[in-house]
Design a protein around this nucleic acid. Structure first.
Lengths: 160, 160
DNA sequence: CACTAAAACGAATAAAAATACAGAGTTAAG
DNA sequence: CTTAACTCTGTATTTTTATTCGTTTTAGTG
């Protein structure tokens, strides 16, 4: 069943990945700006439940970050987020180049990372483009097929 | 040069690895028990400098942690924050893909740039991933070896 | 040695995060 | 329909962490 809490925590993960958030008050404000009326207490509890951590950056500033924990998010949901924002997908030698809706590349790349697809060595995202490195030319081609399938397979309404 | 601060921070890392420490006051006490008379303020500053994070365990308790990564730091070596922020390094054709702790990729890339390593044609960094372009497949493989060495030994050339 | 500049530190305090508590809503059983 | 057990959340508060400020220490220089 999809609860309000699920939606809220999903948004928290999205915001944490897309913004440099350094306090829970900041996150609380961002959440409000995105239609979730919550308090700092709830942020604290959600952050704890989600295992989100606060990291210190090289410049000694800090931000919240979602650790790459295999299987912490339902795959169906990831696919959803991912497929919804893709525009096109092509390969160039061993690289896969994905075009997304403006501003969605970061989210798409991190969704892609979380899927742990075979052949994905690493991803880098700009604003509307994602570069994916594959081990070789063949694998890049296979990846394109896989991703194309996701795009066309449509977004089922299957919930988690 | 070996300073008192070096010794202290090394002991902090040791204690954090060996105990389940959940507050800085706890760490402060442990440090005192080990012959380092410090205050919570100093613990806070050291933890920040060392990039030590607080993680939430599956049982919802929390503790400080030095994140695990491939390769241990040689005993007696001075801690190097840069080497310590690298998680993995693989090649994909002529590209080297480096994974770092969240938020560290930019710094890692620029550090890499300033090293002027042989074969590095260029780098681009996201949040936790760096792509390094090498002239060819062979050279990318060599670069991976070089970087792997740094990860396991720390870069002592001009540090601390 | 002085002398200076920078770095390091502790005490006190501010800022941020976690939680105790109570109330509201939900579910399950009788 | 009621009651009991649970979950979820906000308010108020406590606990924990980060920072400010003033002092001390350290590392260079002449």
């Amino acid at each position: 069943m999809r609860t309000a809490k699920n939606d809220r925590q999903e948004m928290i993960i999205k915001l944490v990945k897309e913004h440099e958030i350094s306090t829970q008050d900041e996150l609380t404000s961002l959440m409000k700006a995105n239609g979730f009326a919550i308090t700092q207490a709830t942020c604290s509890r959600d952050i704890k439940e989600l295992g989100i951590i606060k990291v210190t950056l090289p410049n000694q500033a800090s931000k919240y970050a979602v650790l790459d924990r295999t299987g912490d998010i339902a795959p169906g949901r990831l696919l959803n987020v991912f497929a919804n924002s893709l525009i096109s997908c092509k390969s160039a030698m061993n690289m896969v180049v994905i075009k997304t809706l403006p501003g969605m590349a970061q989210a798409a790349a991190s969704a892609l990372d979380s899927m742990h697809l075979q052949y994905v060595v690493g991803t880098i995202a700009g604003d509307d483009t994602v570069f994916v490195a594959a081990p070789g030319v063949e694998e890049a081609g296979a990846l394109v097929s896989t991703i194309d399938d996701m795009m066309s397979a449509g977004i089922s309404s299957s919930e988690d």
